[in-house]
Every structure is written in C-alpha cells, then in structure tokens.
Write a protein that binds this DNA or RNA. Structure first.
Lengths: 196, 196
DNA sequence: GTCTATACACCGATAGAC
DNA sequence: GTCTATCGGTGTATAGAC
C-alpha cells in the first residue's frame, strides 16, 4: 500500500500536536491554577490562534478530560511501580503505597486539584478518562487485601488519612515537608488500628 | 440631640441591607457553588440591580471577604460552645473538639470551600476577616495543650486527620455519614499515638 | 489545519440622573 | 440609595477563506 505510510505520518503528527496542546495546558495550569486555563493562554503557548485548537479537541472540557486521564494514569503507573515487588512486611506494604500516593499527589498542586476537586460545575470526566482513577482504587483495594485489610471502613479511614495529609501539605506548606513528616507515623497508627 | 435617633435608624437599615445581601450570597453559593457567585444572581435575590450592591460593598471580593469572616466566626462560636465545660477525660476532650469541627465543616460544602480552599486567584481575606480563623487555631492549640498535647507535630497530625475525614465526607458521600462513622475511631487512634 | 473575523454571552465596575 | 446606561474586558465557540 502506498497510502498507509503517509497516513501514519499524518496520524503521528496529529497526536504530536495533541500532546503539545496538553503539555501547554499543564504549563498554564501550573502558572495560573487549573481552573484558570483559557484557550487563549494555551494557544499562545503552542503558537496557534484559539480557534485552531478546535481542530484537535472538541471543546475546552475535552482538554480537561484528557488531562484528567493523564493525571490518574500517571498515578496508576506510580503506584504499580511502587507496589511491584510483593512486600514481606504488612506494615511496610501499607507504607509503600501510602508514600507513593503522597509523593505523586504532593508533587503537583494543579494536578491534584484536577484529580480530586471539582474544577468547574460543568466538567464531568468521561468514562475513558475516569477508568484509570477506578483502577487506582482497585489497586489500593487489592493491595490492602493481600495483607488482610478488607473492611470497607478500613479502606475509608486509610484513604481519608493519607488524603488529609496531602491536602494539608499542599495548603499549608507547599513545597515543604511539614506534613510529609507525619506520614509514616500516621500509617503506623493505622497499622496498629488494623491489627497488623 | 435630634439627629441621633434618625442616624440610628439609618445605620440599622444599612446593616440590615448588608445582611440581606450576604444571606442572598450564601443562597447563591449553595445553589451554584461558592466560585460561581455573580453580582447579578445576588442582586436578583435581593430585588436590586447589580450596580446597587456597590452602595453596600466596595467590590465582589468585599462580599467574599465578609462571608469568609462569617464562616470562621461561626466555626469559632461552635467550637467555643462545644468546648465550654472543661472535659474531665483527655480522650473525650479531643473527641468533643474534633466532632464539633467535623459537624460544622460538613454541614455546608460551599462554606467549607470558602474557608479552606482557594476560591479565586485574586481573593485574599483581609486581616479582620482572617482574625476568627486564627482564633479557631488558637482555641484548638490551647484546648489540646490543656490535656498535655503541645507538640507541633501532634497538632499537625490531628488537624490533617480530621480535615481529611471532612474532605472525604464532602467529596465522596455528601449528606451521608460514611466517613463520619470513622471519626471517633480516628480520634481514638490519635489519642493512643499521643500517649493519652 | 490554520487563519481572520465574528458571534454571543457573560462579567465586574463606573458615571450620572433621579 | 437605587436606578439606567454603558464601558471595557474576557471567555468559548462557529463560519468561512485560504
């Protein structure tokens, strides 16, 4: 086939442009906050005019949607890498996952807001973008089940405590380690509570 | 003086109108979210035209500022009432304050967002509006000090855990009690950790 | 696919009559 | 103090030429 190679190049270029737009969107989000992204700012950064973005994304929310998917996929990858080797000690297994999530969440405030807070009233993630988010929760559920923690209440408490430390760190000491220092202590507390 | 009584009536009416505007703003916040308040929506609800609001508030952010002060003042009042009688048991003292804060925070999502999250990039609370927020933290610090908890790290952990349960409750089970059910357990855990 | 031009809907805020 | 009228700006999105 003669058509195929040129199709490939076109498709490559197209997805490369999409990636450029998403990268630019993340830059804007880091500078002005996730809720303050505008098509003008994104277009400026890619060297386009705002209407041209519509050749690659159907709407602004479609950009948010792709970013949402990227954020949770990155989290899933980070947790998979961290929980790769099966941990011998149950307490260490709990700590490894908690630290990995904390590190990923705290590393990027804008990303964390997109992942966990409602950014705008109308934006709702699509099922495809939402999938890696569900996968993260499933990974957590399975990982804790392996060390004998299966109660729904225990999962709720675990996630709320780690999430609380993340939010406190980002809100009250961004870039610091004031609440990061409490993470291992909190997880030890939880392990005691779970009877490990 | 003949002038004084009429001045009083005028001042009363003025502050009554201010209160009406703030009440209307809270209503809008509850319906559309704290970040989506517009002067038009507020004015409609008070039976005014948007420009007329400027006779009572210097700007939209001045309205946010007053609301911020109200929210934290209400929290301060709630905590003072809850921690009024000196508690005999240290663990119960911890629980009383945690429950009071949790209850107040969870009761109003819009209010909680205004109190703890950044609503817009340009809004910064004035020192006067910020004062009751500082008073709440001081009350917490003193209350825990009375039962022997004085370490900064302990305060950080306590506030992050309670705050984490609040956020989880509002985000994942608004109006329910899925995370509220974990509150006493979490506080018991903390009491153990603090050696009480 | 990118551009110009523009529609369309908002928003916060100000000026000035009453 | 409230009103009408309006300014000046921003935002998403579409139409149509190239």
């Amino acid at each position: 086939m003669l058509v195929s190679p040129s199709r490939d190049r076109a498709a490559e270029r197209r997805s490369a442009t999409r990636r450029e737009i998403l990268d630019a969107s993340w830059e804007v989000a880091h500078e002005k906050g996730i809720a303050s992204i505008t098509l003008k700012d994104v277009a400026d950064r890619v060297g386009m005019r705002p209407p041209s973005l519509y050749s690659h994304f159907a709407s602004k929310n479609a950009i948010y949607d792709a970013m949402f998917g990227q954020a949770w996929q990155g989290c899933l990858d980070a947790l998979r890498a961290a929980t790769d080797g099966v941990p011998s000690d149950p307490r260490e297994a709990m700590a490894v996952m908690g630290r990995a999530y904390f590190k990923y969440a705290v590393a990027d405030q804008a990303r964390n807001q997109l992942m966990n807070a409602r950014i705008s009233a109308d934006f709702q993630p699509s099922p495809e973008a939402y999938a890696p988010s569900l996968a993260v929760w499933e990974l957590g559920r399975v990982h804790l089940a392996l060390i004998g923690v299966t109660a729904e209440a225990d999962l709720d408490l675990y996630s709320a405590v780690v999430g609380g430390l993340v939010d406190a760190q980002l809100a009250n000491d961004p870039g610091g380690n004031r609440y990061a220092r409490q993470l291992d202590r909190a997880i030890g507390m939880l392990a005691d509570q779970f009877g490990l």
